[in-house]
Amino acid sequence: MEKDKVPQDTSNLTKNNVKELLYATDENGNYTTTLSTGWEPKTIALSNSIDEINERIAEAKQQVLNGEVSPISYYMEVNKMDLTILSSYVGMWKWRVKRHFKPAIFAKLSDSILKKYADAFNISISELKNFKTD
């Protein structure tokens, strides 16, 4: 890619004033580096996954409100985790974490177990227990 063709699109990087470095060729065909503020195809790909995550969060929230799953499942989505990542953060087997997704089981969890989840989600135990609907 030639240096003057390096895209300078607005992206999620722009608002944080971050620029990425790219290798590109100068007018003599020699390689040099240049900065780019962003590139549209990447921005779309990223916002596509953000939308995907927000959908999953909304869905998990509704399921918690319907009493189908425990708040653990909701906070897992909020923190962009999946079962594998969450289970390694709390240091429990995946099947055990999955079991804690059940509201009835969740209601009976001890504070020491809840603390592991709260720490992984960076919230307090009471926040985890008292699910807010807003």
Binding site: L22, A45, N48, S49
Partner: peptide, 16 residues
């Protein structure tokens, strides 16, 4: 399919 494709592009071009 669209999600797979978007993920592929992200892995391909994100932060070098």
């Amino acid at each position: 399919a669209n999600h797979y494709l978007a993920q592929m592009v992200r892995m391909q071009e994100e932060i070098g």
